[in-house]
């Protein structure tokens, strides 16, 4: 598995080096910038800091700008990770190289891990850019790097990775990337608490939001970084992330196996 991961990593690295996806990255950074700019404008220029009672109640008096900056960073990172990893197999299908991948007995998880690790560098650039935007708008992100926050980030990446595999299966099944990924991202940014507390939503949407590991990740990260709480009092959230990620990984692996059989029949039949 690790050899496959390494080989995929190497190949993707070469591709990225030859044709660096500038437009994609710039597009994401611009989207991230405006994701922070909108609430910032409302907060600073339009409603001049008048935060509602309900926001304070649900977020334990969180600092608004820090709150939304963290949401935007998570969303942009989640989107790019899920896109790059989730679309990998689909891209092979489009470019006609999927056959060659399927012909090998390689581990699919290894393949996807390779993709994940390869894009971490680009994710980090986006992370720094977004953090810079946030700080210049007044977000208080200095507690962002701690042992606890690193643990949460690793958990979050695990969540993104498991969702990416699900996304990959859906894309291969529907043979569409554009609609599938954008619909998923629109829903994800709406329900997981990116720019407002999940509690604002109707009850049924709140339940629905817990299908995304990001909902728990965001809550956990904000309580650690903004409210300065210890991870130990939120073990339920940690468990939620682990269970969801594990479940999705399992489902995705089964789906990919079934899909693979079908694809092989289609490609070679």
């Amino acid at each position: 598995m690790f050899n496959i991961a390494k080989a995929t990593f190497k190949r993707n690295k070469i591709i990225a080096k030859r044709a660096f996806p500038w437009t994609l990255i710039i597009g994401r950074i611009i989207a991230g910038f405006f994701a922070i700019l909108f609430p910032y404008f409302v907060y600073t220029f339009f409603l001049k800091g008048s935060i509602s009672e309900s926001f304070n109640q649900y977020t334990n008096q969180s600092d608004y700008i820090t709150y939304i900056t963290i949401g935007a960073i998570f969303f942009i990172l989640g989107r790019s990770t899920m896109m790059e990893v989730g679309r990998a197999l689909f891209r092979e299908l489009k470019e006609g190289t999927l056959e060659s991948v399927l012909l090998t007995p390689s581990s699919r998880i290894g393949y996807h891990i390779g993709c994940l690790i390869e894009q971490l560098g680009r994710s980090f650039i986006q992370f720094l850019t977004m953090a810079f935007f946030g700080i210049s708008f007044g977000a208080n992100l200095f507690l962002i790097i701690s042992m606890q926050s690193i643990v949460v980030i690793i958990l979050t990446v695990l969540g993104f990775f498991s969702m990416a595999l699900i996304l990959s299966s859906i894309m291969l099944f529907t043979r569409d990337a554009y609609i599938t990924q954008n619909t998923l991202f629109a829903v994800m940014s709406f329900v997981t608490g990116v720019s407002f507390p999940v509690e604002f939503l109707p009850k049924w949407l709140q339940y629905f939001s817990h299908l995304f590991p990001m909902t728990a990740s965001l809550e956990l990260f904000r309580s650690i970084v903004i409210a300065k709480q210890s991870i130990s009092i939120h073990l339920d959230l940690v468990l939620e992330i682990l269970l969801l990620s594990g479940g999705y990984l399992l489902v995705a692996m089964i789906c990919l196996k079934i899909l693979e059989k079908k694809l092989v029949e289609n490609l070679f039949g």
């Binding site: 409603l47 001049k48 008048s50 509602s52 709406f190 407002f196």
Partner: peptide
Amino acid sequence: FSLLLWPIIIFFNTYYTYLSFDLTKA
């Protein structure tokens, strides 16, 4: 999707984002 479903989701997303504010002062 691109001109109906996504705009609707983003519309509600925006609406709920505003609920973090005290609109009586608007």
